[in-house]
Simulated assay, not measured.
Amino acid sequence: MRISIDHDVCIGAGQCALTAPGVFTQDDDGFGALVPGREDGGGEPLVREAARGCPVRAIEVAD
């Protein structure tokens, strides 16, 4: 699984970090970021749910 966040689109809503905190966090400016070392999702079952929950669709998950 490959996860990417479009930082030009992200508004910092934080839904990703709330849904899958083992994979997503927020950077110093409050925008979505991946937890270091978890760029592949680490088998976290809620990654796709976090992507669906993003209000601006800034998260892409590919297999």
Results as ranks from 00 to 15, higher is better:
residue 16 C to F: 13
residue 40 D to I: 03
residue 39 E to W: 01
residue 34 L to Y: 01
residue 2 R to A: 15
residue 25 T to P: 02
residue 41 G to C: 02
residue 29 D to S: 06
residue 48 R to T: 11
residue 20 A to H: 03
residue 39 E to G: 13
residue 39 E to I: 05
residue 20 A to R: 02
residue 11 I to V: 14
residue 33 A to W: 06
residue 33 A to C: 09
residue 3 I to T: 06
residue 17 A to C: 11
residue 36 P to S: 14
residue 46 L to Q: 09
residue 55 P to R: 07
residue 46 L to H: 07
residue 42 G to Y: 12
residue 26 Q to M: 10
residue 26 Q to T: 10
residue 22 G to R: 15
residue 44 E to W: 08
residue 21 P to E: 10
residue 25 T to H: 05
residue 54 C to L: 07
residue 3 I to F: 12
residue 41 G to K: 04
residue 18 L to V: 12
residue 35 V to K: 11
residue 32 G to N: 01
residue 14 G to Y: 12
residue 32 G to R: 08
residue 63 D to G: 15
residue 26 Q to D: 04
residue 13 A to E: 08
residue 26 Q to H: 12
residue 9 V to S: 01
residue 13 A to I: 04
residue 38 R to E: 15
residue 30 G to Q: 00
residue 36 P to Y: 08
residue 11 I to N: 01
residue 6 D to V: 00
residue 50 A to M: 00
residue 17 A to G: 02
residue 13 A to F: 04
residue 25 T to Y: 02
residue 22 G to H: 09
residue 57 R to S: 15
residue 4 S to M: 10
residue 57 R to M: 11
residue 40 D to K: 09
residue 50 A to F: 01
residue 56 V to S: 10
residue 7 H to F: 00
residue 9 V to M: 13
residue 34 L to Q: 12
residue 23 V to W: 04
residue 22 G to T: 10
residue 46 L to T: 12
residue 14 G to A: 00
residue 1 M to H: 10
residue 40 D to V: 09
residue 55 P to K: 05
residue 22 G to D: 13
residue 1 M to D: 08
residue 27 D to L: 01
residue 59 I to P: 14
residue 18 L to D: 12
residue 60 E to Y: 01
residue 23 V to D: 04
residue 58 A to L: 11
residue 56 V to N: 10
residue 27 D to P: 02
residue 62 A to T: 14
residue 44 E to A: 15
residue 44 E to M: 14
residue 34 L to P: 05
residue 1 M to P: 02
residue 37 G to Q: 07
residue 53 G to P: 01
residue 50 A to K: 05
residue 61 V to D: 14
residue 6 D to N: 12
residue 10 C to R: 03
residue 10 C to K: 03
residue 3 I to H: 02
residue 50 A to P: 02
residue 40 D to H: 10
residue 4 S to A: 14
residue 58 A to W: 04
residue 61 V to S: 15
residue 39 E to S: 07
residue 46 L to I: 00
residue 6 D to S: 01
residue 15 Q to I: 09
residue 1 M to K: 02
residue 24 F to A: 13
residue 48 R to M: 02
residue 19 T to L: 14
residue 38 R to D: 03
residue 20 A to D: 12
residue 7 H to V: 04
residue 50 A to Q: 05
residue 33 A to V: 09
residue 39 E to M: 03
residue 19 T to S: 06
residue 62 A to P: 00
residue 42 G to S: 11
residue 43 G to W: 07
residue 27 D to H: 02
residue 27 D to T: 07
residue 3 I to R: 06
residue 16 C to I: 13
residue 17 A to L: 12
residue 28 D to A: 14
residue 21 P to T: 11
residue 57 R to P: 00
residue 30 G to C: 14
residue 21 P to C: 11
residue 63 D to C: 10
residue 28 D to Q: 08
residue 37 G to V: 07
residue 48 R to I: 03
residue 29 D to A: 08
